[in-house]
Amino acid sequence: MSTAGTTDFGILLNVAFGTFKAQLHARLAQAGFDDLGSSFGYVFRMLQAQPQSLSQVASGLGITSQGALKVINDMVAKGYVERHEEPGDGRVKRLALTPRALAAMAEAQRFHQQFEQDLAAKFGQAPMASMRLILEAMFAGASADGMAQVRPF
């Protein structure tokens, strides 16, 4: 619900996220990662802890195996993911990040930190700490509801 002179909260969140994402992708492009697909960040986070199968990636993304295969094939072609045979079962392929993917993730992490530092410099440490506390509470609620199976960068 909007009142005179104010913008709906959901619109503010959406535009803020869009701004963050656009700046992140611009920074990544400047660093040589100008070929990232919209799902790559989610897959990066999923594979960061350990290699996974295609069906695990599909489940984590909430899409079909065919849809996940399309994303993974694109990531393999661009040098972000590689396939390894499962020991003992050559039919199963484990998907793992390449050094290129790890470099993209490191660049994204630097951007995240700088973005937060810039906000703190602009608005102050206390408001930034409050905003982080609120966002973390929202994230925890989403995680409890099963809404945040993966974390994009």
Rank of each mutant, 00 (worst) to 15 (best):
A126W: 10
F44C: 00
G88K: 06
S55W: 04
L95P: 00
P99Q: 14
Q125N: 04
P87H: 05
M147V: 04
I72V: 15
T3W: 07
V15Y: 06
Q125Y: 03
S53I: 01
A104T: 10
Q52G: 08
L54G: 09
M138S: 09
G90W: 02
D35R: 00
V81D: 13
M147A: 09
D35S: 03
E107D: 14
M128F: 08
S38A: 11
R94M: 13
V43Q: 01
D145I: 02
K21A: 14
L97G: 03
M46C: 05
F115A: 11
R151L: 13
Q23V: 07
T64M: 02
M46Y: 03
M131G: 04
G62F: 03
S65Y: 02
M138R: 14
D118Q: 13
K93C: 05
S39R: 09
N14S: 13
A22I: 05
G60V: 03
G60H: 01
S55G: 10
A96I: 06
L135R: 13
R132G: 02
D89I: 02
R83D: 02
L69V: 01
R110Y: 07
P127I: 12
H84A: 15
P127V: 12
R45P: 01
V43A: 01
A31C: 11
R45E: 15
F115G: 02
A77C: 01
A96P: 04
F123L: 13
G60N: 01
M147L: 11
N73K: 12
I134N: 02
G18P: 10
A148H: 02
P99K: 10
A104F: 10
H112P: 00
S130D: 12
M147I: 04
A49E: 15
K21S: 14
G124M: 12
L54T: 08
S2I: 12
A140L: 12
T3V: 13
S130P: 00
L54Q: 07
L61P: 06
E136H: 13
F20L: 14
A106F: 05
Q114I: 12
T19I: 10
L47D: 03
Y80R: 07
A31I: 08
F44A: 01
A96G: 03
P99W: 03
V92I: 15
V81G: 10
E116V: 13
Q113F: 08
F111Y: 15
T7Y: 11
H25T: 10
R83Y: 03
E82T: 14
Q30A: 15
G90I: 05
K70A: 06
T6D: 10
Q30T: 07
L119W: 05
L24D: 10
L97C: 05
R151Y: 04
T64C: 03
